[in-house]
Design a binder for these strands. Structure first.
Lengths: 145, 145
DNA sequence: CCATAACGATTAAATGTCAAACTATTTTTT
DNA sequence: AAAAAATAGTTTGACATTTAATCGTTATGG
């Protein structure tokens, strides 16, 4: 294939990937904002729900954000009474972050909504297409950063 | 397929799509920040380079951002002398945004870098795989928002 | 013609984002 | 054990982003 055609195909694919991911993100994100949560806040609560209490560093790596950012997100969640910080006794550098009852209730309900939205979004693809999409996206993610 | 398996596949596909798109974005975005541009700034300059001068509303829809946002992004580009605003004479509500010489030089050089990065990213997929990925992503983007 | 609606741009407030500098604490080295 | 390095978290500064409110301009229906 000529160099120019290669570039064209790559740019085209890139654009479609970005637009597709973006529009899914926007529509799924609406379920989160309906619940009064930002995407980051949802990510933090979801991690705590499914993985249990963890320190901020682990939260950050779980949702692929910087630790400086996590501090703020957790600040805001704490203000709303959705999570709680506990300074570790063994190693006082660590904060363990855990869900409050209120936080657990909210994320359980919201997660169900979001899950349904994701299933609906992906429902435009057959199972086989989803498998294929997953494999291709995984390949793209594997390169070194 | 059982409902549970359907959900699991959808969630799995969703996660891979998000991670794949995110990691490509980060790596390609690095070329932009190397040039001192944010992703949005790059998007604005790129639109102006390839589509010619346009009003802010068109810029906004081109890069899928709100008009309030565009005002700020263009403010910052203008401060750096990369673009220029011109209030339209026929209809004074419109601002035409156009590239300066400096802006044109920067975006031409940066676009080449970014294009190369995109080609490299997509290069992990065969041409056929890229076609497939493009089609699947397009399907995902088509739903009503 | 004039009141009002529509429209483009701007501004403001809230949140998020990263990078870099900084603090507190623990571990490692010497 | 003291000094140095590493680690977790916080703070700060610059930019981004959205939504909603506002300003100025243009179009439209009575």
């Amino acid at each position: 294939m000529k160099q120019d055609a290669t570039s064209k195909l790559a740019l085209n694919t890139y654009t479609k990937l970005m637009r597709g991911a973006e529009s899914v993100t926007v529509r799924v994100g609406r379920k989160m904002s309906d619940a009064g949560l930002t995407i980051s806040q949802f990510g933090v609560l979801e991690a705590l729900l499914h993985k249990g209490p963890m320190c901020q560093r682990d939260v950050a790596s779980k949702i692929l954000k910087s630790t400086g950012n996590i501090t703020l997100v957790i600040d805001n969640l704490e203000k709303q009474g959705l999570v709680q910080r506990e300074r570790s006794l063994e190693d006082r550098r660590y904060c363990t972050v855990l869900l409050t009852e209120k936080g657990r209730g909210l994320i359980e309900a919201t997660f169900a909504e979001v899950e349904a939205a994701i299933v609906a979004e992906m429902g435009v693809l057959t199972d086989a297409e989803q498998e294929t999409l997953g494999k291709l996206c995984k390949k793209l993610g594997l390169r070194e950063g």
